[in-house]
Every structure is written in C-alpha cells, then in structure tokens.
Computed example of a mutant assay.
Amino acid sequence: MYSIPTFTKLHQVVVQEIRNPTGLTITSDSDASIRTDGEVSLVEGLYHHQAYILRQLFVQTADEPYLYIHAEELSVPRLGGTRAAGTVKAKSNAQITIEAGTKVTDGKGHFWSVISETVVQPNITTEISVNADQVGASWNFRGTSLLWVSPIAGLSGTAEVISIAGGSDEEELEAWRARMLESKQLGQARDRGSDLERAMKGVPGVDKIYIYKKRRGLGSMDVAITAVGSPPTLPTQALIDAAQIVLDEEAGFWADCRVYSPTEQLLNISAVVKGAGVNYTDVETTIRDYMAELAPVEEYHANTLVTRIMALANVEDVTLTPNSNVQPIVNWMYTYWLRAGTVTVSAAS
C-alpha cells in the first residue's frame, strides 16, 4: 500500500529542492517557506484525490454513489423496498360492500388499503386482502387488530388481523456491497446452488432461500422462500410469482424449477414457571422470540428454550410442554416451518 507523505515531509522535500541550487537558508517565517506551504497544500490535496479515486475502483471500498456504477457492471441493482400485504377479517350486522381502497390503520400513522371490492354478509366473518400504503418494514404488523377508517354503517370498527407482512426497506448499503462481492467472486455460471441463491436474493422481499434439487424427482429443482419481516413470514403469492420469473430465467434451461412457500407447523407451548417476582410477559416474549428465530426445517430444541427462560430475572425453574425436541416434517410435498401457536405461561403451584 503506497503511503502518502505527510505535509511536513512534503514541505521538507520542496525546501530542500530550493536550498540545493540556491544555497538559501530557509526559515519557517521566510518568504520561500510561506510559498512552499502553499505549493505543498496543493500537492497534498492531489495525493488525497488520487487516494479517493483509488478507493472508488473497488467494490470493497467504493462510496455509495460509485457502487451504483459497479452494480451496473455486475448486474446487481440495489433492491428497493417492498409493500407489506396480508389479510384482515371484517364483520358486519348487515350486508355491506367494502370498496377497494378502503383503509385500516393502527392509529399510529400506518395505513393499509383494501385491494378489491368485497361483499360482507350479515354476521359472517369475511377475509379481506390489504396492501400497505407505503413501502417499508414499518408496515409489517405484529398486533391482533386494526381500525377501519370511517367505517360504513353496520361494519364493526375493528378488523382482526390474520397476518400482514412482507414489507421491507431499501437494501442496506453493506448488504448490497456483499451481494456485489459475491457475484464478482462466483463469476459467470448458472448451475450451482450458490448461483441460484444469489439470483433469488435479487428479488425484493425475499429473505431466506432453501434449495431442494430432485425434490419432485429427476430433473426437478425446487426453491422454498420466506419473506422479509420481523419475524420472517410466509411469502405472498405475488412474491412467489416474482421469484418464479427469476428462477425460470436462471435455471429453467436445465431443470423443472418451482418456487414454493414453506408450510407453517404451529407449535403450542406452555411454560410453568417457578419463582417469586417473575415477569411472565418476559417469559412469553422469550418463547416467541425463540420460535421466530427458527428457520424452515429447523428443529425445536426444548433445552435451548429452557436455558433462555432460566436466564430471566427471578426464574428458579421452568417446566415446558413440549419438553422434548420437535423435528418439522420435510418431504416431496411439504417443507414445514415451526412457528409459535398458542403460548401459555403460568406460575408453578
């Protein structure tokens, strides 16, 4: 690595070049020294400019504006954000029609709009699809209910949430840089698992990718995906369709490819906790956080969860149900994903 000379070193070099042919004694307050300072400032600036240019030549060190140039060369565009989508339940005491564009809100500045006109029959719960009004992970909703904005007569003002997820922010700068480096290191090929994973990561909204070759027999290659979220969630059909297009372009020439969604396998968990002054909400949060971390096909380890609960304040002992490991089912038809079902926390008697 070339070392840029310091200002003092450059000053000494220039002063020496003046002194050699002239024999002048150059002091720090002399006219020659002052003029030298001006020249050296310019030279030092040119050195730093060259260092700046050098930094932009490499993906590892380039600043954000120049990463767009590298991205175009490597065909790795930065992923924009995606809109959260999901389903809510509506209930009415009369037959009503909920128009497309009708909104629900959490009361905190987030709004979701009904996708298509839906008829709600009296006293019958109807599922309605909604999309977030804006792009971003903030529109992924983890609560249980939302409020209808200006509900029409007969419609219950509360909409029960089944799930709303899949929203993501613009790709983080370092994550984008890492994808470009991965693309550069892998080179041009389309028949490796790493190539398929790289291509699928280029679909906005895709979180994790799981590749299963020959899942449906010889010549087949299937990819299970999850959607970004906190925690990650099942992909919507729109996301699956977008990923399918990319997969067909990447690997459709050599295999029968299919993108599909894992299947939720709800696991009901109960915890009987012993200890004085235990915060049972913290216990439930610990359980749900552990379940949220599990990836599709990943096993539930009871001992791991017990250890986390025992680390909470005032917990002396805990009895979990189930108290043994649970292995999700994986076969040619399904890729199960353990998710939290009903979580019950109670005090030991």
Rank of each mutant, 00 (worst) to 15 (best):
W332E: 15
R142M: 10
S92C: 06
T105A: 05
L294A: 05
A165M: 14
V246H: 02
Q95H: 14
E99L: 04
V14A: 00
T321S: 15
A94F: 14
L186T: 08
T307Q: 07
E316Q: 14
N268A: 08
G202L: 12
P204N: 09
G143I: 04
P122E: 01
Q12L: 02
D256A: 14
S156L: 14
S129F: 12
Q265A: 08
R192H: 12
V223R: 00
R55V: 05
S168W: 06
S220K: 01
D169M: 04
W112N: 08
T263S: 15
I287M: 04
K214I: 13
N325G: 13
Q16D: 04
G229S: 13
G157Y: 09
A189M: 06
V15C: 01
I152G: 03
H48W: 08
V306W: 02
T321R: 07
K89R: 14
A137T: 06
K213R: 09
L267M: 02
V345R: 01
A71D: 11
P21M: 13
D256Y: 08
R216D: 12
S3Y: 11
R142T: 15
S261H: 10
D31Q: 05
I287R: 02
P151W: 03
G167I: 10
G219E: 10
R288N: 06
H48P: 01
P204I: 11
A199I: 10
I209N: 03
P235F: 10
D133P: 09
M180C: 07
I164D: 04
C257W: 04
Q121K: 12
T285P: 01
D63G: 05
T25G: 12
D282Q: 10
I26Y: 00
W112K: 10
S156G: 15
R308C: 07
N314M: 14
W112A: 06
L146A: 12
I4W: 05
V272L: 08
V326Q: 13
G154T: 06
L46P: 00
T22L: 07
V43E: 01
I128R: 00
V343G: 11
K208E: 12
C257R: 06
